[in-house]
Design a protein around this nucleic acid. Sequence first.
DNA 1: AGATAATCGAGACGGTACGTCTCGTCTTGGA
DNA 2: TCCAAGACGAGACGTACCGTCTCGATTATCT
Lengths: 195, 195, 195, 195
Amino acid sequence: MSKAKLGRPRSEKSKEAILSATHALLSETMGTGLTIEAIARRAKVGKPTIYRWWPGVADIVLEVVLSQANASITVSTSDSLQETLGQFLRESMNAIVNWGGVHLRFLVAHAQKDEAFRDRFRDNFTAKRRAVLKSIFAQAMERGEIGSEQNVEILVDMVFGAMWYRLLIGHAPANETFADDLTEAIIRLVQNPPV
Amino acid sequence: MSKAKLGRPRSEKSKEAILSATHALLSETMGTGLTIEAIARRAKVGKPTIYRWWPGVADIVLEVVLSQANASITVSTSDSLQETLGQFLRESMNAIVNWGGVHLRFLVAHAQKDEAFRDRFRDNFTAKRRAVLKSIFAQAMERGEIGSEQNVEILVDMVFGAMWYRLLIGHAPANETFADDLTEAIIRLVQNPPV
Amino acid sequence: MSKAKLGRPRSEKSKEAILSATHALLSETMGTGLTIEAIARRAKVGKPTIYRWWPGVADIVLEVVLSQANASITVSTSDSLQETLGQFLRESMNAIVNWGGVHLRFLVAHAQKDEAFRDRFRDNFTAKRRAVLKSIFAQAMERGEIGSEQNVEILVDMVFGAMWYRLLIGHAPANETFADDLTEAIIRLVQNPPV
Amino acid sequence: MSKAKLGRPRSEKSKEAILSATHALLSETMGTGLTIEAIARRAKVGKPTIYRWWPGVADIVLEVVLSQANASITVSTSDSLQETLGQFLRESMNAIVNWGGVHLRFLVAHAQKDEAFRDRFRDNFTAKRRAVLKSIFAQAMERGEIGSEQNVEILVDMVFGAMWYRLLIGHAPANETFADDLTEAIIRLVQNPPV
DNA sequence: AGATAATCGAGACGGTACGTCTCGTCTTGGA
DNA sequence: TCCAAGACGAGACGTACCGTCTCGATTATCT
């Protein structure tokens, strides 16, 4: 006996208008102009319609990011850490540079003022990305490319940490070159030099 | 010739009241209740007095953090990377846990919405911390503890990145244990294994 | 086609709360304490709600005055100038003494600093009062109580002028006695003495 | 044993700079931009210097007006009411049109929010003007140009009232033409028609 | 000549109100 | 039952002035 069928169904048109308005505003204003009011205006949608489906502006951004990110997580199962890691990081950086650096910065910023959202952000975004990278390292360890004494958890922290750090602080670019440098550095670090 | 002597001098009492009210509010409300109005109320100070000396709330927090951080940067010049790095990271983590984790999270969050502030934050805080860590690595490299083929810049990104990453995302604690684990991981990575 | 039906309709409760708070504050503080903030506080209303419907504090006062004045304009159509004028001036003075002298003083004061408001004030208040008095004089002129050589426009200026002048400068009371004296003086002036 | 001679004497230069800045600001901004801060800026004078000598901005304006008005009160002692009154009103209107209409409007406006100032304004300005007009009417009454049954007090209220009324409300110009019309109307009213 | 004293400019102080913005909720009529 | 439109109470924003205060410098009279 679901009550899901009662009443007027959710308007997909409105939903998409909201998501695309959010993306547009975020890109145009670098995050400073992204408010619920602005989204409602741009999407020609009533504010209550937004609040009915999302708890706040950050969750809309999260949905925008997820719908893009989920479509583009492609882990090639190469048999070389260098290649697999390199491709993963390059793809990640590309997404940031070409599409959603502002989105991610907005999400992290908002997560600092809203603990509940921080949990949702972590569970739905960063945790999944961590799992991918972790499995990449685990496979390399199985193949002996990484010594078993290494702490994979910390390795993941260092790789993602470096990327977020550059993105958030901006002391140096977070681009494909950085992805390559980072890959190289990790490879150099984890590989035991020839005896 | 400076005209600095003209007019009533700045009230040190008000300045300190503002800084200490900012610290208190930040700690009490986890950052959500830190507004110019709240600071003015708490510090028993007029709003214009605040705007006269700081462009916004984030710059007050930055000054609070700097006045604390500058007092506590102590780089011991030990002759072991393990020891020097360990102490530096442990001290950094201690400061975060016991004193200013909320402060740093607030600063990074604000920096995402205000490019000009991001520059000030980088120049006055993160750049100086980076310089310290970089010199630690440089000395270790001179002593041969780190191979000269390593990319120190990226190393610094990985170490600070991992710390910020944990602090901001919160998937795992950013405490003294993590400082030790991180130190250990770095040491294990950079050191050439015995031939 | 009007779009007036869209959205939540204006709250009559808030409107009345604002008008009555304005009246109360004006009476209590003699005009010195009448600010938008004070009205909002007293009426338990948000400031934007006030600014949505009125351009400023003076227009609220004007509305308060009009809603009272429009209810009390009663021009008896007596056939004696003495009687008609006397009643009109007495009623006007009574309204000032018992209800809204402060209101009128506030309105004139504000009109001196805001030309646009002066126009609204003139069109909606003083012009209507002038029309009434003018018609009283015109009827008296038709009946021969006033010589046709008299300048009615100037007569109106003198009567209302005298009232405003006393109210604003305060060198003598603007009360019912003054209304009688003024009526008498006008009658004495305009009536041709018996030949 | 006055202590008036001790210390640095009042700077006449500053006093004049303040008065002339006040006049200039009043004329330029139509009264909306006349603040203590603006006067201090314009006159290159410290705010305390202003507050040392005047209780508020309105009193400075009053002093400006008085120094001008006192220099120009010239009551010709003609032996015709028509001529004396006409000249007095024309001169008054000229002063308003060419020099200080904004000043007077500012003074009346301020007097509505400050009872103490209203007293000062009345005693130093309007009372003196009333005395002059009253003596004009008194002389005319002695000469028989005005019947002794007329109420001079009310006559003065009507003449000055009409002028202030036009100046403050602005429904019709307060200029020399009005001075003539008003003179004519008064003459017509007070003079007994030929038997 | 030196001390004393009131002035001067400059400008910071604690306040208060301004008018605007956005928040998240509520209330309509229409689909 | 959902939709858009938009009003609502709340409260922070950054600015303008208020009237007071605290400086060092200046300019007079009094000793």
